[in-house]
Amino acid sequence: MVRVRLWGSLRRAADGLEEVEVRAGSVKEMLDALAEAHPGLAPQIARGVSVSIDGVIYREAWFTPIPPGAEVVLMPYMTGG
């Protein structure tokens, strides 16, 4: 299981939870599982999110594995200048 931390405004879409648990081995599996468990998250996930895994930020890294016990934080889709 992966514990995923959500940012503040997403919590409303996840029954007010700051962290949710899903079964997933990769980023894509995690995002799919999140959208299924909490349909309110689906629009944001579809628009794009970044994922921090143990402090490293990934963007569109669908197949990146999530190690057991990793700290996983959902973040908005990163852009830069």
Partner: peptide, 17 residues
Amino acid sequence: KNAATKGTKSSYGPTFP
């Protein structure tokens, strides 16, 4: 005194390396 450092839970979620 207030600086984030390794292990700080950042204001946006992840724990800093």
